[in-house]
Nucleic acid binder design. Structure first.
Lengths: 247, 247
DNA sequence: CGAGCGATTGAAAAGACTCAACCACCGTGG
DNA sequence: CCACGGTGGTTGAGTCTTTTCAATCGCTCG
C-alpha cells in the first residue's frame, strides 16, 4: 500500500512535467523570448514537482543549483531576523521565477521560499540558464527588468516601513494581496489567498497581536469582513484612503 | 567681474571632462569592461560637471536622459514620503553610477539624488548606454550584478526596519558609514562624511530628535565621540554588538 | 477526551514621536 | 562692531502607538 502511494506520488511528479512551449504561464514568464529550439531544450532540462503547502523550496544561506519557475501556486519569500521572526520580502504567484538573484550573483540565497498552498514548480538547472543568458540578449534584458521591478518595489516598502504607521501598512498590504492574488469569484468575494495572522504580520512588519487588533478595527469600520483566514474587502475606496498611498 | 566668474565656472566644468580610459575610478566602475574604442567613444559623449554640496542631480518623478557616474563625491539617494519626510535609500560614492534603474526600466526616477558634498559627476547619454548594452554582454552582466547587490541590500534594510529597534539601526548605520566612506585619516579619526542629524535620521528611519538622543547615549557609553557633524568610532566592537548584526 | 496550534483579548510597559522651547553658531547688514 | 535673523542642534515633557506577556478560546487531530 505504501509502495503504491510512493509510486503514485512519483507519477504525479512526472505528470507535472508539462511542455514549456505550451505552458499556460509562458506568455507572462521570462521564457517567452525563447525560440522553439531553446524552449524544447528547456523541456528536456527542467524538472517539475508538486510541493505541498508549507514546504520549503529553498533556504537562506544554501546555494542555488538552478532556478524555480512557478507553474501554479503561491509562495512567500522571506528573511529570518535575529530573533527568529520572519520578514516576508515578497509574495510570488504563477508565472514568477524564484531564486534568480542568488543564481546570477553566484551567492547563497539571501531569502527562504515556502509554499503558501500546494504548488507546481519547475526547476531549471544552472547551466541551462547561463547558456541562455549568453546566447539570448532578450533573456538577460528580461532578467534586468525583473530585477529593476523588484528593486523598485523593495525601495517603496523601505519607505513605508520607515515612515508609515502599522495601520496604514496593513491596509496597503491587504490591497496588495488583492492586486497579487485577486479574489476568489468576483469583485464581492474574499481574497484568493490563505495567510495566517502571523504571515500577515510578517508582511506588514509588526506583531501578530497588532494585526489581529487592527483587522478587527477594520471590521468594525466596515472596511473588510473576515471568515477564518478569508479576508473580503467591503469598502475598497475607504481602505485605499486608510492605506494613505501617495497620489 | 560676474562675467569672469561665469567663465571660470564654465572652464572648471570643462576641465572636469577627464578621460575615462585613465579615470581613477575606472577599475571599480561598470565601465571597466569597455574596450579602448568604446571607452574613447564614451569620452566624446559624456559631459562632466561640478556639483556643489546640496545640489539636486535628479528628482523623483522626472525622466532620465542618461546616467550619472560619480568621479568624486558623495551622494544621497532618497525617496520623499507622504508627509514630505525623506527616506534615504542608499548612499553613493566615487565610482558609483546613479540613475541606471530608471534609465533601463524606461520609467521615471523613483528616487531623488542630492550631493552631500561638492562632487564631480559625469553624465552619459541614454543612447550611448543602450548601445553598449546591446554590443557588450559583459556590460549588461555588470548592470545585473549592480542590481542584484542593490536588491540584496534593500532587502536587508527591509528586515532591519521591520524588526530592529532604532538604537540598533543607528549603530548599524554608523558602521555602514564607516564601510562606505571610511575615516578621515586613520583608524582613530572621524568618519569621512558630513551628515546632518536629519540626514542620519532619514537613513535610520526615525525622528531627528531620536537620533540626537541616541547619539548622546552612545557618547556616554563611550561608543563614539562627536564634534559637530563629525562622528568618531571609539569602540568598534561594542558598537558592533549594539547594532546586533546577525553572526 | 486531551494535546496543541492558531486566533483573540486584556493589561501593562516600553519605545518612539510630537511639540515646544531653547541654545549655538554663522553670516548679514546696519 | 554688534544686533539680528536664520538654521541646525539639543533638551524636556507629555502622548500615543505598538509591543510584550499572559491568559483564554476554539478548533482539529490523534
Amino acid at each position: 500500500m505504501i509502495l503504491y502511494i510512493v509510486i503514485l506520488k512519483y507519477m504525479v511528479k512526472n505528470l507535472g512535467n508539462i511542455s514549456c512551449e505550451y505552458c499556460k504561464i509562458r506568455p507572462d514568464s521570462i521564457f517567452k523570448s525563447l525560440n522553439r529550439k531553446e524552449s524544447g531544450n528547456l523541456d528536456l532540462n527542467k524538472k517539475c514537482s508538486i510541493y505541498n503547502r508549507g514546504q520549503v523550496i529553498f533556504s537562506e544561506g544554501s546555494y542555488p543549483a538552478g532556478l524555480y519557475c512557478i507553474n501554479d501556486g503561491k509562495i512567500k519569500l522571506y528573511k529570518t531576523g535575529t530573533e527568529g521572526k520572519e520578514q516576508i520580502v515578497r509574495l510570488h504567484k504563477s508565472g514568477d521565477i524564484l531564486g534568480y538573484r542568488a543564481l546570477i550573483s553566484g551567492k547563497s540565497y539571501s531569502t527562504s521560499a515556502t509554499t503558501l498552498e500546494d504548488s507546481r514548480i519547475c526547476f531549471i538547472p544552472r547551466d541551462f540558464i547561463f547558456n541562455i543568458i549568453r546566447d539570448n540578449v532578450n533573456f538577460s534584458l528580461s532578467i534586468i527588468k525583473l530585477l529593476t521591478q523588484d528593486l523598485e518595489e523593495a525601495e517603496n516598502r523601505l519607505l513605508n516601513l520607515a515612515q508609515k504607521p502599522v495601520r496604514e501598512r496593513l491596509a496597503e498590504a491587504i490591497l496588495i494581496l488583492k492586486e497579487t492574488y485577486g479574489t476568489e469569484k468576483g469583485d464581492n468575494s474574499p481574497l484568493n489567498v490563505n495567510l495566517s495572522r502571523e504571515d500577515l504580520a510578517n508582511i506588514v512588519g509588526t506583531a501578530t497581536e497588532t494585526v489581529i487588533r487592527l483587522l478587527s478595527d477594520f471590521k468594525s469600520e466596515k472596511l473588510i469582513a473576515t471568515k477564518g483566514r478569508k479576508i473580503e474587502i467591503l469598502n475598497y475606496n475607504l481602505l485605499l484612503k486608510t492605506s494613505n498611498i501617495a497620489d
